[in-house]
Amino acid sequence: MKPIEPLLTVSAPPHAHCGHTIKQHMRDQLIALLPAAAAAMTVFGFDAVRVMALSCSVAVASEAACWKLRKCDPQVDDMHALIIGLLFAFLLPPSAPWWLVIVGGSASVVAGKMFFGGLGGYPLCPPLVGWAICRISWGAAMDTNATMLNSTLPAPLHELKNIGVPWLQNVDMSSLLLGQQLGGLGAVQILPILAGGLYLLARRTIRPTIPLAFLAGVYLTALIFRFVDPHAHAPALFHLLAGSVVLGAFFLATEGSTSPMGLISSIIYGLLGGAMVIIIRVYGIYPDGVPFAILLVNLFTPLFDRIRPKPFGGSRLGEPYVGGC
């Protein structure tokens, strides 16, 4: 009897792969977020754990439910919903009531991601969509300063808005860097977030262009305002370290399908986003402009993506090549 021939795999090239998969991408993101989560736990205690755990589980559960409704194989195992949930929690005050976390966490996933077909389809950074819905609908509950009255930590951006530059005299920049401020529970853990961001850069999970351009945009715009009127505007370094600028630069503005792909377009995107942060902080009614600034530049992404070099062989459609003989 003839031995059975092996059944070979037939596929299109390439037959090798760089090894970076979606799972690894998400795992890297999660690892990068862990230090900030741990720092939030130590600073805000059980309240932070409560918000993060609830937000993550709601996000995962609502994505699973969406896949179920679409009658598709659930893809929650890629951990993206978990990351959305965690990032959304990072933007909330530790005092956030349970219903706010549930509404926001599910809105991030359902309205921010699944409405657009899932991973890669959404035009806006999903956790920011949930944040914006909550911020506009329940502004009082989302207000970090007003809901954290029993905390001894200052809320620098609120104080800047309410009291003005003189208040900044008793603010120490290094204490801001160490997270001694009120804001989103994870977003204000500046040092751990920065470490996570550098980890992502080292793992090449994200490219340095957008974070650097974003931080530069914040810094330069703040510098210009400061230069124009030093008595009315805070120093540029303060703007970098207060609120969720660092979280936005490394984790929110870099979200795959919502950010441009080219080098030049990424730089413009980052700079504009950073500039928008300061403009909102100076002229807007929201103390921390980062979420809305990123949502706004997300909308510009399709426009920036039109900045492309000429394709190989020039800008002509050409003839399809279907393999020579």
């Binding site: 970076h20 979606i22 991973l119 890669g120 389809g121 399908s257 919502t258 792909m261």
Partner: peptide, 12 residues
């Protein structure tokens, strides 16, 4: 058989 996640690696 998955959707493009839009990371842009191929473009770069």
């Amino acid at each position: 058989d998955r959707f493009c996640m839009g990371c842009g690696e191929c473009v770069r």
